[in-house]
Computed example of a mutant assay.
Amino acid sequence: MKIIVNAKPHEVAASDLKGALQELGYACSSVATALNGTFIARGQRTEVQLAEGDCLEVLAPMQGG
Rank of each mutant, 00 (worst) to 15 (best):
G65P: 15
C28K: 10
G43E: 08
N36T: 09
I40G: 02
G65H: 15
A27V: 02
M62G: 12
K18V: 05
V48F: 14
A20T: 01
I40S: 04
G43M: 08
G43K: 09
E23D: 05
Q22V: 03
C28Q: 11
A41P: 05
G64M: 13
A32N: 07
V31H: 04
A20P: 01
G37W: 09
T38K: 10
K8Q: 12
T33M: 03
E23V: 06
A41N: 10
A7M: 06
N6E: 03
N6F: 02
V48G: 09
A51K: 15
E47N: 15
T33N: 02
A27T: 02
E23Y: 06
A41Y: 09
A60T: 15
A27N: 03
V58C: 01
E57D: 10
L56P: 01
V48Q: 14
N36R: 06
G19L: 07
E52R: 14
G25D: 01
L21A: 00
S29H: 12
V58R: 00
C28E: 06
E23I: 05
G25S: 07
G25W: 00
L50E: 10
M1I: 06
D16F: 09
T46Q: 15
A41V: 03
V5K: 01
L56F: 03
E47K: 15
G25V: 00
S29I: 01
T46V: 14
S15N: 13
G37Q: 08
Y26V: 00
G65T: 13
C55H: 07
L59N: 10
R45H: 07
H10A: 10
V58L: 01
P9N: 12
L35H: 05
V31N: 02
Q49C: 13
V31I: 13
A13W: 04
E23P: 04
T38L: 08
A14V: 09
V58G: 01
C28M: 06
C28L: 10
G43T: 06
Y26R: 00
H10S: 09
S29V: 02
V12F: 04
K8H: 09
C55Y: 05
G25K: 03
E11K: 05
K18I: 05
A13K: 10
A60R: 15
H10T: 03
G53N: 13
P61M: 07
G65K: 13
L35G: 02
V12Q: 02
V58Y: 00
D16N: 14
E57I: 05
K2E: 15
E23Q: 09
P61F: 07
V31F: 04
F39M: 12
D54I: 04
Q22F: 02
T46G: 13
S15M: 11
G65F: 15
A41L: 10
K8R: 14
A32C: 11
C28T: 03
V12E: 01
L17V: 05
I3Y: 07
A14P: 08
T38I: 08
A32K: 04
S15K: 14
A41S: 11
S30G: 12
N36F: 08
A41T: 08
